[in-house]
């Protein structure tokens, strides 16, 4: 029953996605339909047009199994032979190097704000 309800709710999320995609293509904005759908669902929840209970189970199911939906694209790497050599190692070096810098910059920035906030209270 709970599962059936979740599936139905995923249907609602697909409706939001469809509306988002339509808006994106009709208005020619470079923002993907999924992000527009996200914004739309947020606004509808915020203005109490959609009740949280109508989407909560379905959204929870999708978000808890998020990794599964990335797997088929990850497997797509087998179509790129050139990435299994020196080029691939270089690409990985760039991704690791840049990834570390990005996370450090973001993390330190947020920590700095966090400590300043604490300082305000004291």
């Amino acid at each position: 029953m709970r599962f059936a309800k979740s599936i139905l709710q995923i249907g609602y999320l697909y409706v939001m996605l469809f509306i988002g995609n339509s808006i994106s293509s009709v208005l020619h904005i470079p923002i993907p339909g999924s992000i527009i759908g996200l914004g739309l669902l947020f606004l509808l929840l915020q203005f109490n047009i959609i009740k949280l209970e109508w989407v909560e189970l379905g959204a929870g199911l999708l978000l808890s199994e998020l990794l599964l939906f990335f797997i088929p694209s990850a497997i797509g790497v087998i179509n790129y032979d050139e990435l299994f050599g020196v080029q691939g190692m270089k690409v990985i070096a760039v991704i690791v190097g840049s990834g570390i810098v990005v996370m450090l910059a973001t993390g330190y920035m947020a920590e700095w704000f966090g400590h300043r906030k604490k300082g305000d209270v004291v």
């Binding site: 999320l13 996605l17 759908g37 996200l38 999708l62």
Partner: peptide, 10 residues
């Protein structure tokens, strides 16, 4: 992934 991205609204 499409509806999952929308689900982040929750």
């Amino acid at each position: 992934l499409g509806p999952a991205t929308v689900a982040f609204a929750v």
